[in-house]
Simulated assay, not measured.
Amino acid sequence: MGRVTERRKVIRIRDGVVSSRPDTLVAEEPLEIRLNGKPLAITMRTPGDDFALAAGFLVSEGVLGAASDVRNIVYCAGATADGVNTYNVVDVRTAPEVVIPDITLERNVYTTSSCGLCGKASLDAVRTTARWPIADTPPLRVEPELLASLPDRLRAAQRVFERTGGLHAAALFAEDGELLDIREDVGRHNAVDKLVGRAVRSGALPLSRAILLVSGRASFELAQKAVMAGIPMLAAVSAPSSLAVDLAAETGLTLVGFLRGSSMNVYAGDHRIALRTTTRAARS
């Protein structure tokens, strides 16, 4: 199977001094995801947790929602000159009773490590395929101070990032701040898929009491993945997109951006943030 990191020679220049040294880089390889034997999507990912990645991808597509929906997940033989398996093709076989949504049957896409599900249909597609409404029973309430502490916990748990500086991360936290799971990948959407895939395969969906934290921006695709997994709160250390905010507002997702230090912006679902100060509208 593929390695998470690889070594390459690099010319290093520091203060005018030139030297040669090996450098540790994040591995990036294509993964073809097949559904019941038919090609569905190709994504550029960091090898590892490939079965979870494929399962999580299919949760976001509305195909999977429980461990029983999966009959099996296997590697298919890759094409190499010497016949060695590349471990870059995964086939997910669903249980006979699983109904594949039309939007998934029509998909045959190439996704990159940066853009996620490029060209994903619309907000309506998410609303029609989401299995679980985002609701709180009992209500989820998170202190701003707890939220502010999560990025440091995420960074401390990024083992491969410390060696390469080139990976995104996604983590699931409990409402009391306990780190439940963390995955790293060259693509932020892959990291989320790996988290959700591990959850669905262990029978943990919906993740109705979890906080999802991502190391970069909050795109529509990441908000979609949170909604499809029943996650009530998505926080990002960078900015959200306008479509992510629209989706959060329509589905009840709490969306937090620019989570840095003690500061954050709450774009939707502020009822889950335990605010204790009077809010003031900024001047336009």
Rank of each mutant, 00 (worst) to 15 (best):
M1Y: 15
G2N: 12
V4R: 11
V4E: 09
R8I: 04
V10E: 12
I11T: 14
R12M: 13
R12V: 15
G16T: 02
S20K: 11
S20G: 07
P22C: 13
D23Y: 08
P30W: 11
L31H: 03
L31E: 07
P39N: 00
L40E: 02
L40V: 03
D49L: 07
D49Q: 07
D50K: 03
A52P: 00
L53T: 08
L53I: 02
G56Q: 08
G56L: 12
F57L: 06
L58R: 03
V59Q: 03
S60M: 02
E61C: 10
G65R: 09
S68G: 10
V70M: 13
N72G: 11
A79Q: 09
D82H: 00
G83T: 04
V84D: 11
T86G: 06
T86C: 04
N88A: 10
N88I: 02
V90T: 04
V90K: 02
V98S: 11
I103M: 08
L105E: 14
E106T: 06
V109C: 04
Y110I: 10
T111L: 07
T112F: 12
S114K: 04
C115F: 05
L117A: 08
C118R: 11
A121L: 13
S122Y: 04
D124Q: 15
T128A: 12
T129S: 13
R131Y: 12
D136W: 04
D136V: 04
T137V: 10
E143Y: 01
S149M: 09
L150W: 13
R153K: 15
L154P: 02
L154D: 04
A157W: 07
Q158R: 15
E162Y: 03
T164V: 11
G165S: 08
A169E: 11
A170V: 03
L172M: 05
F173E: 08
E175H: 03
E178T: 13
L180H: 11
D181A: 06
R183P: 00
D185F: 13
V186Q: 02
V186G: 12
G187S: 14
H189M: 15
L195H: 03
L195E: 03
V196E: 08
V196L: 11
A204K: 14
L205A: 06
P206I: 00
L207N: 00
L213D: 06
V214Q: 07
S215Y: 13
S215M: 12
A218Y: 09
E221S: 15
A223N: 02
K225L: 13
V227F: 12
P232S: 10
P232I: 00
M233R: 01
L234E: 03
A235C: 14
S241I: 00
S242C: 13
S242R: 14
L243E: 10
L243V: 05
L247M: 04
L247S: 06
A249Q: 15
T251E: 12
T254M: 01
V256M: 05
R260N: 14
R260Y: 08
V266C: 12
A268K: 01
G269W: 01
G269C: 01
D270P: 00
H271R: 09
R272K: 12
R272Q: 09
I273T: 01
L275D: 14
L275S: 03
T277W: 12
T278H: 02
R280N: 07
S284A: 15
